[in-house]
Write a protein that binds this DNA or RNA. Structure first.
Lengths: 220, 220
DNA sequence: ATCTGTGAATTGATTCACAGCC
DNA sequence: GGCTGTGAATCAATTCACAGAT
């Protein structure tokens, strides 16, 4: 398969750059809320603990958004980043697993304002099915394929116990989901072309203790 | 020919390696639970979608744990990784913010079996203070410094609203906490020497949509 | 005078490839 | 034959440093 070097939307964007763009967008939204009109890469870098050169280089993959001697227009750059990230539309999501975690997700107010909307919720447990959380009625997982083929979503959120998670993810992929946010602590896999992100506080803790273990015990 | 310093570990460990070790440990625990005694880097790599060479190289920073022609003894390697990561002890944590998210954290059963124990919970809101979740009674944040100086913790978990998060983190640092797990969606900072990890599902979603936006709409 | 955008240089991470051992 | 451990080679990411714009 040939990749053309010419073309409209140019070359490959380094993976880490894509991971940083949402960070930039968030910082810009903060500045915008404060009424700041212009920001330099140095100032943004201070906010985010990232070098100014990195910010400029990252942005340069997508275009030239700044003015020499001045900096970036906050609103304009934020607008452009939202476009680049695809945040100029609403994304529909399905949640699988409505236990304690799943309920917290359904009732979490942080997704909707960013354009991420949970439109279906499923659970295996008959106890949860039929209940309503955050305005959504929980359906049985047995209806997953049927519901999603009638009313597709872009993203799946997996909040089931570890032992069931990979199978649920496979179902979601079969239903045409193209991205999965997985909260289950397992080595999860998706086929090529289906994005996957893990939310795993235990892994985060375990990588911090590596740095803690050699330090003196908490004392003053 | 320079030889490696014998039995020492002051060699500098790449940051990414430390982030992968908990992944290895988890996969090994899975194998162990299945009764598997030996594993090769190729098999582990299959489980985790990591190249065998990377696994061998990562482990080589810490010692020689395998047998040529055979592989790694699952139990022994897991044991060593747990030691390296500091998982051979219990870590004490304080939770700040007992809203919906904080409650889900207190009632989450996944920390304790891994040796991470929440021993104090704080909230600003008088409504939450005094209530008990997961066996812990919520105290007012005003007592944070007093309680933590009498009974220190290693790690702080921040689950307060965004506007309050940085101030809470600063307090925790003053209380001698050496690592923070932050759930608030802000560009958070800790001083040099205080580890920080962010749990941020919205950022994860926003970096996935970058890849989704150019694809055909969900259709079947 | 200031700050962007970007090739070039550098630093860091991953993969290769093979000697050595089981 | 199979697999580890590891220098060397490759590939990727970051930082430097400066020309050019305002």
């Amino acid at each position: 398969m040939a990749r053309k070097p010419e073309g409209t939307r140019p070359a490959k964007i380094p993976h880490v750059v894509v991971l940083r763009l949402p960070l930039y967008a968030r910082a810009l939204a903060l500045l915008q809320a404060n009424g700041q009109e212009v920001v330099s890469s140095a100032e943004l870098g201070d906010m985010l603990r990232v070098t100014p050169a990195q910010i400029r280089k990252d942005l340069s993959y997508f275009g030239r958004f700044g003015k020499q001697g001045r900096g970036y227009n906050v609103t304009r750059l934020l607008e452009r980043l939202r476009l680049i990230l695809g945040l100029d539309r609403e994304w529909r999501m399905a949640l699988i697993g409505v236990g304690k975690l799943g309920r917290a997700i359904l009732e979490y107010g942080g997704f909707a304002p960013q354009g991420f909307r949970v439109v279906h919720a499923f659970d295996l447990d008959a106890g949860a099915v039929g209940q309503t959380f955050g305005g959504l009625t929980v359906r049985p997982v047995s209806e997953l394929e049927q519901v999603l083929s009638a009313d597709p979503v872009d993203i799946g959120i997996v909040a089931v116990p570890a032992f069931a998670a990979q199978k649920v993810m496979d179902s979601l992929v079969r239903c045409g989901v193209r991205a999965i946010l997985n909260y289950a602590p397992i080595p999860a896999h998706t086929p090529q072309g289906v994005e996957l992100r893990q939310i795993d506080p235990v892994l985060a803790l375990q990588s911090m203790t590596f740095h803690l273990k050699s330090l003196a015990p908490p004392a003053e």
